[in-house]
């Protein structure tokens, strides 16, 4: 009997926690993930082309709870690309990420702004040796494991 009560309670609590994250509610961020096998780079300055404010070399707070990665940087929605300039001792790198925006309608969230892979053309341009971008969507469903936003993986500096 105790086990049955526990199972019902567990089910109810699991259902209560299976909420969704309805996309961005403020300026979105892009996350950058470095190769975990190599030491992480120490940037002295990070510049974002077109930004009206300086950005800390440690990045900013992610725009969604489902975001993951080592560094979070703002994304310019007024353009279809954002360029970042990374400065470290004796080296400067650039990274440009391309994207497109669209409105999606989710039953539980209503209208949500999604930032997705461009339908044509390139997705990333970088002076890092190996970098790739993933478009995971900013709407997150914890049941289906989606979400996380745009994530750039820098495998080799």
């Amino acid at each position: 009997m105790k086990i049955q009560v526990f199972i019902i309670l567990f089910g109810v609590l699991s259902c209560l926690s299976c909420t969704e994250e309805c996309g961005v509610t403020s300026e979105p961020t892009l996350s950058i993930q470095f190769n975990w096998r190599s030491p992480k780079p120490i940037f002295t300055k990070i510049r974002v082309v077109g930004a009206t404010k300086e950005i800390s070399p440690q990045g900013i707070k992610p725009s969604t709870e489902s975001a993951y990665g080592d560094l979070h940087l703002p994304l310019n929605l007024n353009e279809s690309q954002t360029t970042y300039i990374f400065e470290q001792q004796g080296r400067t790198d650039t990274l440009t990420v391309f994207y497109t925006t669209n409105i999606q309608n989710f039953r539980r969230c209503g209208y949500v702004l999604e930032i997705a892979k461009p339908t044509t053309g390139r997705t990333i341009l970088s002076s890092f040796k190996r970098a790739e971008v993933q478009y995971n969507g900013y709407y997150a469903s914890y049941q289906s494991g989606t979400g996380g936003g745009i994530n750039v993986q820098i495998a080799e500096l």
Binding site: V24, T25, S26, E27, P28, V48, G50, A51, T52, K53, I55, I60, P74, N76, L77, N78, T101, I103, N105, Y111, V112, L113
Partner: peptide, 18 residues
């Protein structure tokens, strides 16, 4: 209506919803 996202590092963004 619109989706309006206040900008902190870039100008605010507005787009119409259907």
């Amino acid at each position: 209506g619109n989706i309006v996202l206040d900008g902190e590092y870039f100008p605010s963004y507005t787009t119409a919803v259907p």
